[in-house]
Design a protein around this nucleic acid. Structure first.
Lengths: 345, 345
DNA sequence: CTCAGAGTCTATACCGGTTTAAATGCTGCG
DNA sequence: CGCAGCATTTAAACCGGTATAGACTCTGAG
């Protein structure tokens, strides 16, 4: 019969001391005689004692877990590479810290808020990641209201009150500007942007960066189509752009799946990429490297982003002072899908 | 000042009964007078009482959470669409059941086993999903040893002892056979297979299905290359196949990212797809639909798989009898990347 | 020699539920 | 009328930790 796992009381009994003292010893608290402490630790070791997260949770009112709520329509099978990588980065920090990651996937904003509330009400998490920031994001007020430590990915435009919500930001605008500069430098004048949803902060950031870079190059950023970041949207937007009267010679997409879909549409229409049309993506999925022609894109580092965000959040929960973190900006990587503008006929 | 949330003791005090009776009433246990029960429920409602998962966890020795351990190298940004969808399906069941999902991402098998152990030792989970089954999978013995309720995705080849590990299986072989039949029917004789890792059960299943279908069509399944499911592997395998002496006219890939990479390689080599080379994938990512030519592939339903697996696991934990579940088989979907075999020169 | 104070350690309450044994009240039967 | 038997309810233990007040050394200064 498997012996039940030892509790702190067993350790206390074996050591001939009280429970409380064992607790002190195990938590490196002062007030325990050095040799007693050692004896207790040795016995705990020998008995194979491990703390019960459950019991500790109840008594210290913490859960030793962090929460991530992802909002997306589950029916839409999207090969967004961000989350898997981001989560891997988060785990890398949590695991050694003895923390767990609680994941929730919901379909819409209503459920999203409800999910945060529920996770907190159930005492499942001690802190949360806020990803995919939106304009007037209700989650910022919510975590404040709930008193839930949180970190945002990217800087929110405004934080409620004298906020204590640190941001871990990666400047994605720089990459877009690089891409536009690159294209303009290749002689492109009609450059379009297939943007992400404007209500999402990174969607509009990238768009603003596009506008800025275009104006700086003396071009009018008038060919912009807003999408939902889905491959199908990218295809639709591309068809629309190519069917237009004065079609672009280059398209800057807000993510890789849309760029790849756009590439497909262009090729389907008989265009040569990059001969007739240059294309750039955003995110650096591994597939982009292998399509033909290889996709010029803007690469970020979601694994690192995850680690950084987790570190900030852990520090915050520990009560240490935190401040915003700036990660190295996303960089434009030239591959084969972008080239010189076609000679005007 | 925010009133602390009410405990069962508050409810008891307001109702003028004992804690124990409140607990009975709230859990629909017999032995409580109907009108007392109602009064208690009304007061609990009025006070906005919610059970404390933490306290309940400690006293009933359950965590009300399920675990998913994903093994993959975090540095490899892979756009595998399976997990996000699978998780969405799982969540759809867990959330209404008041259960949470604890996610762990690890880099290799050693960490994987350690992760299961840790999750159980910490009492974080009541059950686990076992995905990406391998031959002689150590996890089966482990969950048995740990007494951890578990469900496998797909049927393991053998289960330890008189196993109590139910499987939720989706017949993926059927799709591969359909694909081969389709290609053979179009006149292809040299059909290659870019397979997944042989140590993974679905990798070798798909390969077996390929062999079977080939033999049935009177063809020799001699062009098979084993890979690690990564896009880069797909590209490499394709280059190898195309450089060979007697190059194939069709390639069946074990997943979509590899197929898309293969498509890129073929096009890069100046081949027309499907004119010179037919290509099929596996998984039905949304991108496949939008590349040019649209990828013929085999579509599964990971969302449904997730829901089914979660249901089985929940039932198991509840102590209800469970049995294996068979989901509808993956189906071949013909799109544009497969066509008649080229006329032999 | 006494007493203050530091250093150790114990006893006990507490976190918020569940569970069990025992107490209470009521009904109906002999 | 007495008592078995049932339904209802209470009190208290328990899950496994943490936290706090107080008790018990021992030392050193006055």
């Amino acid at each position: 019969m498997a012996r039940a796992r030892p509790t702190i009381a067993d350790v206390a009994a074996h050591a001939g001391v009280s429970k409380g003292l064992v607790s002190f010893a195990l938590n490196n608290r002062p007030g325990v005689a050095p040799q007693t402490r050692e004896r207790i630790l040795a016995i705990a070791e020998e008995l194979g004692w491990q703390p019960s997260v459950r019991a500790r949770s109840l008594s210290v009112a913490r859960s030793f877990a962090l929460g991530l709520v992802i909002t997306r329509d589950p029916e839409i099978i999207t090969s967004d590479p961000f989350y898997p990588s981001f989560i891997a980065g988060v785990e890398r920090e949590l695991s050694p810290a003895g923390q767990a990651l609680v994941l929730s996937v919901v379909s819409n904003e209503r459920e999203e808020l409800a999910s945060y509330r529920k996770l907190v009400a159930d005492g499942r998490i001690d802190g949360a990641f806020i990803t995919d920031l939106r304009h007037d994001d209700l989650r910022l007020g919510l975590v404040q209201e709930l008193g839930l430590p949180a970190v945002t990915l990217g800087r929110p435009e405004s934080r409620p009150g004298v906020s204590s919500i640190p941001a871990v930001a990666m400047e994605d605008a720089a990459g877009i500007e690089e891409a536009v500069d690159h294209l303009a430098g290749l002689g492109h004048r009609r450059i379009a942007h297939v943007a992400g949803p404007a209500r999402m902060l990174h969607g509009s950031h990238r768009r603003q960066a596009f506008d800025t870079a275009m104006r700086r190059a003396g071009l009018e950023p008038d060919l912009v189509i807003e999408t939902d970041f889905k491959a199908a949207d990218g295809a639709r937007a591309t068809r629309h752009l190519l069917a237009g009267p004065d079609r672009p010679t280059a398209i800057v997409y807000a993510n890789d799946p849309m760029a790849i879909a756009g590439l497909g549409v262009a090729q389907h229409a008989g265009l040569n990429v990059p001969g007739d049309l240059s294309i750039t993506g955003f995110d650096g999925t591994d597939i982009g490297e292998h399509v033909y022609p290889a996709l010029s894109t803007i690469v970020a580092d979601p694994v690192r982003w995850g680690s950084a965000a987790a570190r900030v959040l852990l520090r915050m929960i520990a009560g240490d002072p935190t401040e915003d973190v700036d990660l190295p900006p996303a960089r434009f990587v030239r591959r084969k899908s972008s080239g010189p503008a076609p000679r005007t006929p």
